[in-house]
Nucleic acid binder design. Structure first.
Lengths: 144, 144
DNA sequence: CTGGATCCGGTTTGATACTG
DNA sequence: CAGTATCAAACCGGATCCAG
């Protein structure tokens, strides 16, 4: 391991490494996992599956809320690939597919739990902060 | 503007509400907060600021890693609006702006901590799951 | 009929160039 | 140094279409 500092991108903005001897492989992998998991739909689906247990595709979509089929499919695929959910297809007519959290998926759900609690605890403080920020900026109607 | 819904056919996919009497305002707000916070860059910036304390814009960009200026700016703005960081501008000739986590921001960082631990704990299991999934899928679905 | 794959249009992100 | 401006690329949502 010598001089692996080869800049992956030529532009000088990011990609600078700190001088810390962190294992780059593990670092990158953990970062990648965070990138895959720190996603709105992933969290929402995880939460829904945790709350209701095994669910079918359409039912899951309804319970999650405003999610498109495409994102539901895509997110579930990635979660399946990462070992967070198992996908079971019953070869019947009409099709029946159900999704269940794996042990690891439940673990992630538990880990995210504190974030949900944080959100519920601080929601009004966040709203105040948003209002104050909007006022400070003059015109920034962040209404969704 | 009445009656114009269902133009060809209001598609029945999402937007269904569960019959549960959950406070819709709070529900939507918490969901919105999760949507804002469950973001790759938000988590990464949060982690970096938590680890290194108050930092300047460029330094933060370097430490976070492969992030573009635009996303760094944008994410920091939203975090500021949500009250997660404070942005302090020193009116000096080379501009000097530094970012610091607020109390609430540190709270969110602590909440995310368990997710980082989860990622570090299960990284090899995830890798295995990914490999297994790729092998399972990769061979079968090769089409034209 | 359910699950999901595909095409199209709008939005978001990324990479570069430029400014105070 | 700390951003904006700008254009291309990737992504997301919605609708349609398809397979079992």
């Amino acid at each position: 391991m010598n001089q692996i500092d080869t800049p992956p991108r030529l532009y000088e903005w990011a990609g600078r490494k700190s001088a810390q001897p962190v294992d780059p492989a593990l670092e990158g992998l953990v970062r990648d996992i965070i990138g895959a998991v720190a996603d709105k739909w992933t969290m929402l689906i995880l939460e829904t599956l945790e709350a209701h247990g095994t669910m079918r595709f359409t039912e899951l979509g309804h319970k999650v809320g405003e999610i498109s089929q495409k994102m539901l499919t895509k997110t579930l695929r990635r979660m399946e690939a990462d070992g967070l959910v198992t996908r079971k297809v019953h070869p019947v007519v009409p099709p029946h597919v159900d999704y269940t959290l794996t042990e690891m998926g439940r673990g992630l759900g538990a880990a995210f739990c504190s974030v949900w609690i944080w959100a519920e605890t601080h929601h009004d403080e966040i709203e105040q902060a948003r209002t104050a920020f909007a006022k400070r900026q003059g015109v920034a109607v962040v209404r969704t």
